[in-house]
Amino acid sequence: MAEIHADEPTRRDFLYVATGSLAAVGAAAAIWPLIDQMNPDASVLALASIEIDISNIPVGQETTFKWRGKPVFVRHRTEEEIKAAEDVDVASLPDPQPDDARLMTGPNGELEKQWLVVIGICTHLGCVPLSYRGEYDGYFCPCHGSVYDTSGRIRKGPAPTNLEVPPYAFISDTKIKIG
């Protein structure tokens, strides 16, 4: 009878390792498509961020853009609109938020008070509010009567919160990137 030493690998050991390795590679190859299909498709990634040229929006006007299937209002506020937004007693608001907290700093590091960027969807039931309407010359949702001011903050009506501010940043004096 031949004597086998435990130190030396046998042919059977090699077959076990080779079979296990092949099974692991096969399992990974079978599972990868299931994991990869959970990633967003190209059309969603394309809408993840947009760059907007704001140089063509005159003072006192607003332009609507589409981002992730939602309307985004970009408003070039007048000095009167900025003053009206800053002079509000924040404690009296249903969703207290100062005007400065709803704005971003520009490329020069200063707060860009003249630019308001909000998602144009009423926070009550998802209607699109009308611009430059309502008691505060901000936004008015005709569906249920929610009234927002020139900073997009809820002032009256059933809406529970202010108009949402999307993530955005100034990439130059004339362009902003949303998303």
Rank of each mutant, 00 (worst) to 15 (best):
G26P: 05
F14S: 11
P98I: 11
P9T: 10
V165M: 13
V17T: 15
Q97C: 10
T78Q: 05
H5Q: 12
I121T: 11
T150V: 15
P98F: 02
G152K: 00
R75T: 05
A42K: 10
C127R: 03
L34E: 04
A24T: 15
D99W: 00
H5N: 15
E81T: 06
V72A: 06
F65V: 10
A27I: 13
P167K: 12
K113F: 10
D87R: 11
P98H: 04
G145C: 07
A30G: 13
P40H: 06
Q37Y: 13
A48K: 12
C141K: 00
E3F: 15
G134H: 00
G157R: 01
Y16G: 09
Y148C: 10
R11E: 06
N162S: 08
F14A: 13
P160S: 02
A6W: 06
F14C: 03
E81N: 01
G106W: 00
V165Y: 05
F65L: 11
S151D: 04
V17M: 09
A23M: 14
I57K: 04
I176R: 01
D13I: 06
P71V: 07
W115G: 07
A85E: 01
P58K: 09
L125N: 04
I50S: 05
G109Q: 09
V17I: 12
M104F: 15
V128S: 02
R11T: 13
D173G: 09
E79R: 05
E62C: 15
N108S: 08
Y168T: 14
E3D: 14
P142W: 02
G120F: 03
V74S: 05
A29R: 10
A159L: 01
A169H: 13
S43V: 12
G106Y: 02
L125S: 07
I121W: 03
S21I: 15
A42Y: 09
T150K: 04
N56C: 03
P33D: 11
L116G: 04
Y148A: 06
D7S: 14
V59R: 12
I82S: 03
F73L: 05
D89L: 05
G138E: 02
I57H: 02
Y132L: 08
V44S: 10
I121A: 09
E112A: 13
I171W: 08
Q114Y: 08
K83C: 13
S55V: 07
A29Y: 14
R12Q: 05
V90I: 09
D100L: 13
P9G: 11
P96K: 04
A6L: 14
K156S: 00
I52H: 01
Y139C: 07
A169M: 04
A24S: 10
E164V: 08
V118A: 10
A48H: 10
E81G: 06
S21E: 11
D53Q: 06
V128N: 00
L163G: 02
I119E: 10
I50T: 09
D7K: 08
E81I: 04
A6H: 08
L116A: 03
P40Y: 13
C122A: 00
H144S: 00
W67S: 04
D41V: 13
V117S: 07
R75M: 08
L22C: 14
P160I: 08
K175G: 03
A46Q: 09
C127S: 04
P96W: 09
E112G: 07
A101I: 02
D99L: 07
V165G: 09
Q114P: 01
G69W: 06
I54A: 03
R11W: 04
D173E: 15
